[in-house]
Amino acid sequence: MKAITKYWFLEGFSLFKKLGMPSMMKLCNLLEMEHVDKGNIIDMGDRDKNCIFFLKNGSVKIIDSENNIVKYVVKKGNIFGELSIYDKDNSSKEVAIALEDVVICYIESDMMEGLMEEYKSLKNGLLKIYGLRIRKLETRLQDLLYKDSKTRISEFIKVFIEEFGEVEKDRIVAKNLLSHKDIANLTNTSRQTVNNVLSIMRKENIIDYDSKFISYSKKTI
């Protein structure tokens, strides 16, 4: 695909906002692009070399391939696989699964490291993303220590809807992308507990959901 098309795909990424057009075009010439259908696996360790991925459309969940547990969810305009730069030995333990039809661009991590040395804004941007991942993990550990399972699940649902949803009149509506097992993984609870909590939240009119969408009223925020 032409570099100018890749440029258009990467325009929405905050990571590249400080790069000028010439630098962006240089980056685009190094990128590969791929369409992945919903439900398919993006095996980050099954390529010639480790890569960093830029998610233009759709969303993916990142799974620890050793225990099949969901680690986090990535939405469009964000990156994943950055662990291949900072922890080369363990990066192959992650697998991404497309929660929707997605469009990704990817670059070999060695090439990205070279660009990071050339462009300080890229280096700082990736360090910030990596730091946020660690902070979210620390928050999950604190929640596990100090919050009960019902609170962890209900707070996760609200944060997910806010992050992945859009305002429609008086409600925030998101695609219902995660299974109860996924939510259980992300909140360190059981699938049955997730099912019970979601049922209670719906009965109390805190949220509403079906197989396609999940939402809650802005009045409950």
Results as ranks from 00 to 15, higher is better:
M1R: 04
Y7G: 03
Y7I: 02
F13Y: 03
F16M: 05
F16I: 04
K18W: 04
L19M: 12
P22A: 05
M24N: 00
C28V: 02
N29Y: 08
H35A: 14
K38R: 12
D43I: 00
F53A: 04
N57E: 11
G58N: 06
S59P: 06
S65D: 09
V70K: 01
Y72T: 08
K76A: 13
G81C: 04
E82I: 02
L83G: 02
I85E: 05
I85T: 00
K88W: 07
D89A: 06
D89Q: 13
S92I: 10
A98C: 04
I107N: 01
S109Q: 09
M112T: 01
G114P: 02
M116P: 00
N124A: 06
G125Q: 05
G131W: 03
L132N: 04
L132T: 07
I134L: 15
I134Q: 10
K136H: 05
L137P: 01
L141E: 15
D143E: 15
L144G: 00
L145N: 09
Y146R: 06
Y146G: 03
D148R: 01
E155H: 09
I157F: 09
K158L: 10
K158M: 08
E163S: 13
F164D: 05
V167I: 07
K169H: 11
A174R: 07
A174S: 15
A174P: 05
K175W: 08
K175D: 15
N176H: 15
L178S: 08
L178I: 07
L186W: 13
R191E: 15
R191L: 08
T193P: 14
N195A: 15
N195Q: 14
N196H: 10
S199F: 06
E204F: 02
N205M: 09
N205A: 10
I206A: 07
S211E: 11
K212Y: 14
K212F: 13
S215Y: 10
